[in-house]
Design a protein around this nucleic acid. Structure first.
Length: 573
DNA sequence: GCCGTTTTCGGCCCGACTGTTTTCAGTCG
């Protein structure tokens, strides 16, 4: 069983945490974290490289020693160094360190002075008044720690929220802030359109920062003020979301947006390039000595570094800086490039709106086409269609097409891929359709080999066009089927099939990394909403955002083509 | 532990806020 990149990263991160608590050199600790981040961001499996230590060592930030460790983890699934560290330091201390306000140093001191080994110990010691007697700790710190323990037990530690949920909270807040603050901008992972976001970073311009911050903390959704200064204020909203507001002047605003958009590793990479040119980059600008050479806009800072403007979605240190140096940045797809939606449901199965309502809603979106893809009979829960009912729907769609002036409704289906790889409806009806979307909904727990063969066999059917929500993951809920995605992508390309980016914000499946991998393989994708409500057609923006994070351009996505061209692409040889 | 307009040690991204102490360490992003 090959060891996943994420597992390797997890082990390296744990080593970093333990070394950190031990009080090891912070740069040594950082190198473990850097390696972990790099590995978890890679699409190639590092285990496959493990025979070739040179290849591993050629990865930036991984040297001889780290390569050996990675090799050991790849081979055995673990590493002796970690066992030794766990003998020295209780692993439960890592949990304490993850509490807000408590870092490696305080964790170590508390362990040494009071023999605290768990969050439970910590709570008891705090309540007994033992902690405030320790040098460097005071009443306030103890109060903060107790509150964090309270929050931690409420939420079980996981705090990230999905992008669209964050959007619902942020929208009204931006309107409110805009009343007294200029150019309010949401930065951070929200601007990079990551599928989940942690804290929200908001930036603004104001000549009167004190008044701006006052306005901010008076927002009705603010539950608690965590920190309040003239340039930075942090609050916790009632929803539990932490929001930071930072105020800048015009001259620094581009630098500030760049800095707080991140990602962290992108920024670090930029600053390294800056250093080579003897520049210093911070949130106020790009400096040579004390002289500010740029700062008003992000673009001028990139220019000074010899780079083209890098779109926020690409700023993950996954090769975008190299591409910018060489002038090879992708011309990213935009929502306006989408000509139609290739997955939508109606009341015929589990959709909540009729064929007519869905058609009209798609026409309003300005689409050239909409595929109606109701479920097949296997999905009994949704009232899936058998041949007869699908035949009826085909006639209804033909009828609808005579009525609709500006949009073509495509005859389609979301047919189940059964456990043996056959499709849930016979070819006789599938051949009547404009396109066939195929999906796995049952038997999700097959072994990797079986699941992969199931999909590959399904693609042998000449009517198979698109694999919907290919991994089956649900963000924050389930991780998806075990399957060899690379093999499936390569075979899909060979066979003239396509994979979907499902735009539902709970799915976003394929994710950004798989989308990028597909592009590298040369496989084209679709971006579809899987709409069950007319309003869901708006999810397209999330799918496009994910595609942009995967470096996709207009030509990488087939539903950017007019129907005439798309039709040809859907014809399998 | 990594890296080097590299040659083997000395840097390693940078700043704000808090709390505790009185000049700074810890934490965070």
């Amino acid at each position: 069983m090959p060891v996943h990149n994420k597992e390797i990263a997890k082990i390296l991160n744990e080593i970093a945490d333990l070394l950190d608590i031990k009080g090891e050199n912070e740069f040594r600790v950082r190198s473990y974290r850097n390696a972990a981040r790099t590995i978890s961001g890679m699409t190639e499996s590092i285990t496959q490289m493990a025979d070739n230590k040179k290849q591993i060592q050629s990865i930036p930030g991984i040297g001889e020693s780290m390569a050996e460790k990675i090799e050991e983890i790849s081979r055995t699934g673990t590493i002796s160094q970690l066992d030794k560290l766990r003998d020295q330091i209780p692993a439960s201390l890592v949990e304490i360190m993850k509490l807000e306000q408590v870092g490696p140093s305080r964790t170590r001191i508390l362990n040494e002075e009071l023999n605290i080994e768990s969050i439970d110990d910590l709570k008891k010691a705090a309540e007994k008044g033992e902690i405030e007697k320790v040098e460097g700790f005071g009443k306030k710190t103890v109060e903060n720690i107790l509150r964090e323990i309270e929050e931690y037990s409420k939420k079980g530690g996981s705090k990230r929220v999905k992008l669209h949920e964050a959007g619902e909270v942020i929208g009204p807040m931006i309107d409110y802030l805009g009343k007294k603050i200029d150019d309010v901008t949401v930065a951070g992972s929200y601007r990079r359109k990551k599928e989940t976001v942690g804290d929200i970073d908001i930036l603004g311009i104001s000549k009167d920062p004190v008044r701006a911050m006052e306005h901010f903390v008076n927002y009705e959704e603010v539950e608690r003020v965590l920190a309040k200064g003239e340039t930075k204020t942090s609050v916790k909203l009632r929803t539990g979301l932490q929001v930071d507001l930072r105020i800048f002047d015009k001259q620094s605003y581009g630098a500030a947006i760049l800095y707080f958009t991140g990602s962290k590793s992108h920024n670090i990479a930029l600053r390294k390039i800056g250093q080579e040119k003897d520049y210093k980059i911070n949130e106020y600008g790009l400096y040579k000595g004390n002289k500010r050479l740029a700062g008003k806009s992000e673009k001028e800072i990139y220019e000074k570094l010899g780079l083209g403007y890098i779109e926020p979605e690409l700023r993950e240190d996954r090769g975008e800086i190299d591409a910018a140096k060489k002038g090879l940045l992708p011309d990213l797809i935009t929502p306006g490039d989408i000509k139609g939606d290739l997955q939508a449901h109606t009341t015929a199965t589990d959709g909540k709106y009729s064929l007519e309502e869905m058609s009209e809603a798609a026409e309003k979106m300005g689409y050239e086409y909409l595929a109606i893809t109701d479920h097949s009979k296997k999905v009994a829960m949704a009232g899936g269609l058998d041949e007869k009912r699908l035949a009826v729907q085909i006639r209804e769609i033909d009828e609808m097409n005579r009525k609709m002036k500006n949009i073509r409704i495509l005859r389609a289906v979301e047919v189940d891929i059964l456990e043996d790889g056959s499709l849930d409806l016979p070819d006789e009806i599938l051949k009547e359709l404009d396109l066939v979307v195929c999906a796995v909904h049952y038997n999700m727990n097959l072994s990797k080999r079986k699941q992969t063969r199931r999909i590959l066999r399904a693609m042998e059917n000449p009517y198979f066009n698109i694999l919907a929500h290919p991994t089956g993951r649900m963000i924050g809920k389930r991780s998806g089927y075990d399957m060899d995605m690379e093999e499936i992508m390569k075979e899909a390309k060979n066979k003239g099939c396509f994979l979907e980016i499902n735009s539902n914000p709970d799915r976003l499946d394929l994710n950004d990394q798989y989308a990028k991998q597909a592009k590298e393989i040369g496989l084209k994708l679709t971006i579809s909403t899987d709409a069950h409500y007319t309003g869901n057609l708006e999810y397209m923006k999330y799918g496009v955002a994910q595609a942009r994070r995967g470096w996709l351009e207009k030509e990488d996505v087939i539903n950017t083509r007019p129907w005439k061209e798309l039709k040809k692409l859907l014809k399998r040889k």
